[in-house]
Design a protein around this nucleic acid. Structure first.
Lengths: 134, 134
DNA sequence: CGGTATCCCGGCCGATACTG
DNA sequence: CAGTATCGGCCGGGATACCG
């Protein structure tokens, strides 16, 4: 799966291949598909959102992890952060055009999986049953 | 994002919503998008594959993690395992029809991200630059 | 409201050794 | 070849406290 690479070239010169250990695309994929990354990007697809509203959309995320997740996504250019210097402070997060493309592909996967859960749960039962019965 | 749920119903009666904390679809999403799950499913899209061949396709994965990942995916009905009782042993892994659908959506995301890496890397530079320069 | 700093535990994950 | 078993570190991530 890895493409050959001559020793003195860097990955930035080459097509990016996520299957290669050293490729930076692997980091971005992990930011986007990580435990909280996928849900955060998916939730933002519904529109711009403030911090605590986002926390409510992504059920179960802690302040710390949401903050970390948003910083990583902002750094990668998936999300923009708009902080207004008002009191009380108001910060809006929003997907970039790049982020919207990512979100659409992610949501396609998410919705497909949600729709496949009956099949998945049934498969789990067979698997667990055949193991327990041996 | 979470849908209201009356106390005495279980999630299996309801549409599955990955944004709700207790929804089992969240586990499956994590199996499929996890650090090694996404790469394993993506690699298997190229066709059936034996264990060590798969290890080579997914650069950097350990035996232990590949084994764990494959078990979780098999349990969820994403991957089939075909063990032939020969010597030396030969085991082929293959995507199920469900797995192929998942893989296509995953690869759509992966290929999009690979193609967006110049933009991502440039965004990272701006982000890091504006932080370092303050 | 919208965060950051600190503490700390569980479990992810790599390394190694062993089995059939 | 295709795994399983065990050990240990390290870090993801929750809880809490605190700041502007």
């Amino acid at each position: 799966m890895q493409k050959p690479v001559s020793p003195d070239t860097t990955y930035t010169d080459l097509p990016f291949d996520v299957f290669a250990r050293a490729c930076p695309s692997r980091e971005t994929l992990e930011h986007v598909t990580g435990r909280w990354g996928s849900l955060t990007v998916g939730a933002l697809r519904e529109g711009p959102c403030r911090f605590n509203e986002l926390r409510r959309r992504v059920d179960g995320v802690s302040e710390k992890m949401l903050s970390q997740t948003l910083h990583a996504l902002e750094r990668d250019g998936i999300v923009t952060r708009d902080a207004q210097p008002t009191n009380p402070p108001r910060v809006d997060y929003e997907l970039t055009p790049l982020g919207r493309e990512v979100a659409d592909r992610l949501l396609s996967l998410i919705h497909f999986l949600e729709g496949s859960m009956p099949q998945v749960l049934s498969s789990r039962q067979s698997y667990d049953g055949s193991r327990g019965g041996l």
